[in-house]
Design a protein around this nucleic acid. Sequence first.
RNA 1: GCGCCCGUAGCUCAGUGGAUAGAGCGUCCGCCUCCGGAGCGGAAGGUCGCGUGUUCGAAUCACGCCGGGCGCGCCA
Length: 565
Amino acid sequence: MRDPDDRHTPLDALRASLAAVVEEMAGGAGAGVTSGRRSLVLERPPKPELGDYASNVALAVAKAAGMPPRELAARLGEGMSGRLGEELVRFEVAGPGFLNLFLADAWHRRALAEVLDAGEGFGGGGVGDRGERVLVEFVSANPTGPLHVGHARNAAYGDSLARLLAFHGHDVEREFYVNDAGSQVRKLGESIGALARGEQVPADGYQGDYVQNLLASLTNAASMDAAELGGAAVNVMMGQIMRSLQRFGVAFDHVVYETTLHQPREDLKGAGGGPLSAVEHALELLAQRGHTYESEGALWLRSTEMGDDKDRVLVRSTGEHTYFASDIAYHQAKRERGFERQIDVWGADHHGYMKRMRAAYVALGGQADELEMVIMQLVHLLRGGQRAQMSKRSGEFVTVDDLVEEIGVDAARWFLLSRSHETTIDLDLDLAVRQSSENPVFYVQYAHARIVSMLEKAGAGRVEAALAEIDGDGPDLHPAERDVVKALVALPEEVGEAAQRRAPHRIAAYALDLAQRFTAFYRDCRVVGAEDRQAESLRIALCVASRNALARSLWMLGVGAPEQM
RNA sequence: GCGCCCGUAGCUCAGUGGAUAGAGCGUCCGCCUCCGGAGCGGAAGGUCGCGUGUUCGAAUCACGCCGGGCGCGCCA
């Protein structure tokens, strides 16, 4: 977690006060909680009667402090009272020793002012000066067929994770790695060739209408051999894949082709003095570091020394490099390009590949934790409750384009992103269309559009004036107003938690929660035309801050924030 | 056999040590003189797969089972 001093968000300040009080009251006993890896817990209690914020810190340090938790909590409450002055109305000690804090309207007003001062960047930049150069590699689908729903999940996740990490303060780039060098490309060429000659596609070849379409888009197909056909088909396929992704709101900074890793590079000189390919360079590096050996005519990586289950072949006895060798070279190239952290977003069927990849990364000289491999669990497709197949060879799959056409980009991305990437999700295609009209994403978007409409009604001049005078006094705040302030103030920590845990789905949950709280506020509090001028100003300010936070959250998910619907 | 992920409301899923376990959808009952009803309020609905352990406190951590998914190639 962050140091509380990195930023000065309202909650950080509150937490810092509590930490200071713990130091005072519990001395060294509190050190582990206040300065340790875990920052001390200050959270919204489950029920409003339990205050604005609650902490279990007394429970956590009671033993070390040699004091009953409730007694310690009471002392901490007194300390907080002294520090916060009138901003703390009162405190309560509850249950086994929770400290519940009841904050004054003044605290809420000041917190809102700070949120607005931070502007549209509020909630971001949490890593402070500890940002890293991060490469997120995702989708990386084989260029032998269209993207299916599983790729859509991968694409939505990778793109959203990149946005999230960037907003949190990292220097992030996105990359698509194209496996265009393997046997499956030749197989695709053979399949197209067979169709061109009017023959049956080989049993282990690629089937489906899209293969026919590939053939139709290639001129002179009949005069090309399987390798040429495969290469030409990959070019066409990649064009289609990138168009599908673009439609899905996903763009890449780099596309790296596996074949380029086999081309000699002038900047890579081998021991013999000649230019080396990235693959040769990586193999030489592994050999120099003493991690390879020859056996049975093949070159092996001694990956068991780095925790793998068995050693792995790098160069087959036929002299051909394995896919693994390319992948090692690719990861080494990314290291040499200056990325301190590599995040690979992989499909569920790749989890068995993780150990060897990490072993190879360490063998190259990297730190094990610099390489993260995120495994995306499956999207289970159902049609009327029946399992739908996703076999690429039989051609019976639902493509990204199909999904977008049926339920739209926003509903599709929301659906795929609002669940944790590490759980298998069910998508019933028959329900998808109907449910998309009741999808929570529209509720969130609607809240955003409604705010924009309200602010227009108030007028730009009135909004500007309101923002200039929120820090003053005014009538007592309505509970719904205080609730929205607390939801807004939570954004920085939500972003931090989501980024740290690589969990964009938390942002979806946050956006929905904020939209619900805002809607409750809208119901209970008249904004434009409120009887009191100061009340109207504060409410307009709440609208502006809520609009920013909703727009930012939706942006992190790659979902639109419409001004009208 | 080994490895990874999962098992929470009718369905789809949140919730990685705290208080009476939540949301959306579905079901039932209410609510439109009013800034956007794509809304709001309420109700019903749960042995958090099972067991043991750690802890003041476990859906959450450990171990063992049961059930489901996905992997385990000199394929990519």
